[in-house]
Amino acid sequence: MAMQLTIRYETLLKRATGVATQTLEIAEPCDVREVVKQLAEEVGDSVRPMLLDSSGQLQRSLLLFVNDQQIVGDMQCTVTDGDDVTLMTPISGG
């Protein structure tokens, strides 16, 4: 049976995608970075560069959370059915 994740977009990503949340089906548990790459295939050309760099790797500036825990550097994190993945572009003051 397919597994379902909740994807949350915040800040510039929310504005660019036009949605706050979506569900994503995955076939089996996988590393959260694979989830982001799967999303990058769906979001369209204007949003994809906010997720992936020109070599297809996650943007270093992207803030990534699984169940409200940040995933940084080379930290591994396998996501599975019911997990919550939040993607956020850093923001500033002004």
Binding site: L12, A16, P49, M50, Q59, R60, S61, L62, L63, Q70, V72, T89, P90, I91, S92, G94
Partner: peptide, 21 residues
């Protein structure tokens, strides 16, 4: 705790100096 560079190691490409708020 994390420092700013842990949280945001580089400037996001999509950021602009002026923004809605």
């Amino acid at each position: 705790t994390p420092c700013l560079a842990c949280l945001t190691p580089e400037k996001p490409a999509a950021w602009t100096r002026e923004f809605p708020v």
